[in-house]
Amino acid sequence: MKKVIAFGEALIDMLSTSFSQDAGDEHEAFIKFPGGAPANVAAAVGKLGGRSYFAGMVGKDMFGDFLVETLAASGVDTSCMLQTREAKTALAFVSLDATGERSFEFYRSPSADLLFREEHFDDAWFTEPGIFHFCSNTLTESAIRETTLAGIAKARETGFLISFDVNLRHNLWSDDQDAFAAVWQCIPQVDLLKLCVEELEYLCAGQDEDAVLNKMLEMGPSVILVTDGGKGVRYVSAYGQGSVVPPKVTMVDSTAAGDAFVGGLLYALAEQSVGPVELKAMAQTPISLLPALRIACACGAYTVTQKGAINSLPMLKDIQSLLTD
Rank of each mutant, 00 (worst) to 15 (best):
A98C: 09
I295A: 01
D113W: 11
T138A: 11
K32G: 00
L213W: 02
W173T: 08
N40V: 01
D97I: 12
Q21Y: 11
K47A: 07
M251R: 09
N214Y: 03
D97T: 15
K280C: 05
F106Q: 12
V252K: 10
S109K: 15
T140V: 15
D123G: 03
S254Q: 09
K154W: 02
D165K: 11
N214A: 12
S163F: 09
D176W: 06
G264W: 03
K248Y: 05
K248F: 06
G308H: 06
K280P: 00
C204R: 12
Q320N: 12
D325Y: 14
V68H: 13
A92V: 12
R145N: 06
T17R: 14
A205L: 00
G206K: 13
Q21D: 15
G263I: 02
A281K: 12
Q306N: 07
A182P: 00
K3F: 00
S243C: 08
D325N: 15
V45H: 04
R117W: 06
Q185C: 06
D97V: 13
I12M: 13
D122P: 00
N214R: 15
L289A: 05
L114K: 14
L225V: 04
L322Q: 03
Q83Y: 03
G59S: 05
T70R: 14
M81T: 00
L172E: 01
P276I: 07
V262F: 10
G151E: 05
L289W: 04
G36R: 11
E128T: 12
P247N: 11
G230E: 14
Q284C: 04
G8E: 08
Q83V: 00
W184R: 13
F116R: 01
C196V: 10
E209P: 00
E26M: 10
G151K: 04
G263F: 11
W125F: 15
Q284D: 02
L195S: 01
Y53C: 04
V274Q: 02
E141Q: 15
L172Y: 07
D259Q: 04
L269N: 03
D77H: 07
T138C: 08
E101S: 15
M216P: 02
S163E: 05
E105M: 13
P34W: 09
I152Y: 03
